[in-house]
C-alpha cells in the first residue's frame, strides 16, 4: 500500500453517496416513509384484526426512519476516505483504490 501513497497524482476522496451506510440508510428510509404513510392513512379494521390492534406499519415505519437517519448521520460524521491514484496507460486496472488509515 505504500507505493500507492507515493504514487504521483494520488488524491483522497470521500466515499460519498455509495458509502454502504448511505445505501442502507436510503433504502430503509424509503421503506420507512412508505410504511409510515401507509400506517397513517390506510390503517383499517382488517389490518387491526391481523396485528391484534397495533398499527404495525406506523411503528415499523417510525423505527425504520430512525434507523435510516442514524446510518446516514453516521456516514456524514465519520466519512470513509479512500486514496485514488490513476495508473499509467496499459496497467491491469485503470486506477488504484486504497483506504486511508
Amino acid at each position: 500500500m505504500s507505493e500507492t501513497n507515493d504514487a504521483p497524482g494520488a488524491h483522497v476522496e470521500k466515499v460519498g453517496g455509495f458509502d454502504i451506510r448511505n445505501f442502507i440508510g436510503v433504502l430503509i428510509g424509503i421503506y420507512g416513509l412508505v410504511l409510515l404513510v401507509w400506517g397513517l392513512f390506510f390503517f383499517d379494521d382488517v389490518e387491526a384484526g391481523k396485528t391484534g390492534g397495533v398499527n404495525a406499519n406506523l411503528w415499523a415505519g417510525i423505527g425504520m426512519l430512525v434507523f435510516a437517519a442514524a446510518f446516514v448521520l453516521w456516514s456524514r460524521l465519520r466519512p470513509l476516505k479512500i486514496l485514488v491514484a490513476e495508473n499509467e496507460a496499459g496497467a491491469e486496472a485503470p486506477k488504484d483504490i486504497a483506504p486511508t488509515d
Binding site: 466515499v15 454502504i20 445505501f23 412508505v34 479512500i82 485503470p94 483504490i97
Partner: peptide, 28 residues
Amino acid sequence: LLIALYFVFVLGVGIYAKRGVSNSIEFF
C-alpha cells in the same frame, strides 16, 4: 412496489459497477 425497489437498488449498483465509473462502488 417495495419489492421492486429492492431490486432497483441492487441491480442498479450491479449495472453501475460494471461501467466502472464510481470509485466508491469499486472500493466496496
